[in-house]
Write a protein that binds this DNA or RNA. Structure first.
Lengths: 109, 109
DNA sequence: AAAATAGTGAAGTATCCACTTGACAATTGT
DNA sequence: ACAATTGTCAAGTGGATACTTCACTATTTT
């Protein structure tokens, strides 16, 4: 597994869970505290903390602790990686479809 | 859960597994049979079949059986939904950052 | 017709993972 | 100083899930 693969793996694993996507939703709308997230999602603070760790490692969310309160906000890195993945895959099979198109065009001649 | 949420849920769940991403990789490069995928990934035919079911439901892969051989190819629907998800989220927090930028600009005056 | 190939279906297993509880640490309010 | 708030750590639990095996069907090859 290359370093890039690890990043992609972390990213998709992070987004694979609906609760974590809910956190991303909430946090990308506005910065939010751990307690607030626990209230909204109706899970324990501990659970939120665990999700946040995964989300931070995936580059989707950034958190900062001031005093006793940790604030979570969106982080572009993860989204960039995701966008790149989609774009790369799209080009791969679009090229293939292009070649297929050429082939069919030649057959028509 | 709305219908859109179900689609997104299926999609990210499908991509959350490294083996399934490997299948997507392979299949987006060129149409592939079940047996070939089993060889490449070193898992049983049954396992491949199970993954394919999930991938089909997520709109990432399309399969067609001719005679006794099932051929898998890439399907754009899933990618479209994924791209839309990324774009939507990006705009949400980019707008927020814009407002933050405006706010800071006003403070400077 | 017999043998080989390609895949499917049901059932079991083992691992992962989301979540909880309970005990604790650190900060803030009264 | 005390109480309340906010979060963290370690350990446990239940359910999901990625696989496997074994038995079977359907197609192709010889």
């Amino acid at each position: 597994m290359t370093k890039k693969d690890v990043i992609i793996d972390r990213l998709f694993h992070a987004l694979g869970d609906p609760t974590r996507r809910a956190i991303v939703d909430r946090v990308s709308a506005e910065p939010t505290t751990v307690t607030r997230l626990a209230q909204v999602l109706d899970i324990t603070l501990t659970a939120v903390g665990q999700h946040l760790q995964i989300l931070e490692q995936s580059g989707l969310v950034r958190t900062e602790k001031l005093g006793r309160v940790r604030t979570c906000s969106v982080h572009p890195t993860g989204f960039d990686a995701l966008e790149r993945w989609v774009r790369d895959h799209r080009t791969v099979w679009e090229r293939r479809l292009d070649r297929l198109g050429d082939f069919l065009a030649e057959e028509d001649e």
